[in-house]
Simulated assay, not measured.
Amino acid sequence: MRPSILTRSFISAATVAAIAGGSLLGTSVGFAAAAPATAPAASAQSVSILATQNFGLSSAQAKRVQGWLATYWDYNDSIDGQLGTNSWKAFQRCLKTYWGYTGAIDGDPGVNTIKALQRLLQGYGYTGAIDGDAGSGTRAAFKNFADSR
């Protein structure tokens, strides 16, 4: 005999209530829980190092900078218009040699890298403070630098 609509509705409601309560005939819903993650989460530092930072350059301008870095500063990655870790490592080698960069060659364009870059960019129209902040003046001079490559 087929159960009536009222019977099926009651069974459905009871099933939902039992699952919500945590048991259905002694069976826990915990079996459906996701397994814990086994891979460690990336740290904020590793993410920032891997990110690209063009500081306002277009892809075409960044490709010109990468070409210059490849010619003079041992950049050997792809010329893709994305100034990533390897681009900034090559730039840091230049900045360390000529523009007072004293940090690690780590590819992270942090405050000290930007300060040295600002010193370089004084020859390309940068007139602001050497403060490590890649603001509008730094970005405009960086575009001038890229356009001269």
Score class of each variant (00 low, 15 high):
residue 87 S to E: 02
residue 100 G to V: 09
residue 87 S to F: 08
residue 96 K to E: 09
residue 94 C to L: 12
residue 100 G to W: 10
residue 108 D to E: 12
residue 87 S to N: 01
residue 96 K to T: 13
residue 96 K to Y: 03
residue 86 N to W: 11
residue 88 W to I: 12
residue 86 N to G: 12
residue 111 V to S: 14
residue 85 T to C: 13
residue 85 T to G: 15
residue 107 G to L: 00
residue 96 K to A: 14
residue 99 W to H: 07
residue 116 A to E: 03
residue 105 I to M: 07
residue 109 P to D: 07
residue 112 N to C: 09
residue 117 L to T: 11
residue 94 C to H: 15
residue 102 T to M: 04
residue 100 G to L: 11
residue 102 T to A: 05
residue 106 D to R: 10
residue 113 T to Y: 09
residue 97 T to K: 15
residue 100 G to E: 13
residue 91 F to L: 10
residue 120 L to P: 01
residue 104 A to I: 06
residue 100 G to I: 12
residue 98 Y to G: 08
residue 92 Q to G: 09
residue 81 G to T: 09
residue 89 K to S: 06
residue 115 K to E: 00
residue 81 G to Q: 07
residue 81 G to C: 10
residue 85 T to E: 13
residue 91 F to H: 03
residue 108 D to C: 08
residue 119 R to D: 05
residue 106 D to T: 04
residue 111 V to T: 12
residue 82 Q to G: 02
residue 88 W to D: 13
residue 113 T to F: 06
residue 87 S to Y: 08
residue 86 N to R: 12
residue 96 K to H: 08
residue 115 K to V: 09
residue 98 Y to Q: 14
residue 115 K to T: 00
residue 115 K to Y: 05
residue 117 L to C: 07
residue 86 N to M: 15
residue 82 Q to E: 05
residue 108 D to T: 09
residue 96 K to R: 14
residue 93 R to L: 14
residue 108 D to A: 14
residue 103 G to F: 00
residue 92 Q to V: 05
residue 118 Q to V: 02
residue 96 K to G: 06
residue 112 N to T: 09
residue 85 T to D: 10
residue 105 I to Y: 03
residue 112 N to S: 13
residue 103 G to N: 01
residue 91 F to M: 13
residue 99 W to Q: 05
residue 100 G to T: 12
residue 109 P to L: 05
residue 87 S to C: 02
residue 114 I to N: 00
residue 118 Q to R: 07
residue 95 L to H: 03
residue 84 G to K: 08
residue 118 Q to S: 01
residue 101 Y to V: 09
residue 115 K to F: 07
residue 82 Q to K: 13
residue 82 Q to I: 06
residue 99 W to S: 01
residue 114 I to P: 04
residue 81 G to H: 10
residue 106 D to Y: 10
residue 114 I to R: 01
residue 110 G to I: 06
residue 107 G to P: 01
residue 113 T to I: 05
residue 100 G to N: 14
residue 96 K to I: 07
residue 93 R to D: 11
residue 110 G to N: 08
residue 98 Y to C: 07
residue 112 N to F: 13
residue 83 L to V: 06
residue 109 P to V: 01
residue 118 Q to N: 05
residue 99 W to E: 04
residue 119 R to N: 11
residue 81 G to V: 04
residue 105 I to Q: 02
residue 109 P to C: 05
residue 114 I to Y: 01
residue 95 L to F: 06
residue 96 K to C: 03
residue 117 L to N: 10
residue 93 R to E: 13
residue 86 N to C: 10
residue 104 A to W: 09
residue 106 D to I: 02
residue 84 G to T: 06
residue 91 F to I: 09
residue 93 R to A: 11
residue 120 L to F: 10
residue 113 T to M: 06
residue 120 L to I: 04
residue 95 L to W: 01
residue 120 L to T: 04
residue 103 G to E: 03
residue 86 N to A: 14
residue 108 D to Q: 15
residue 116 A to D: 02
residue 86 N to H: 13
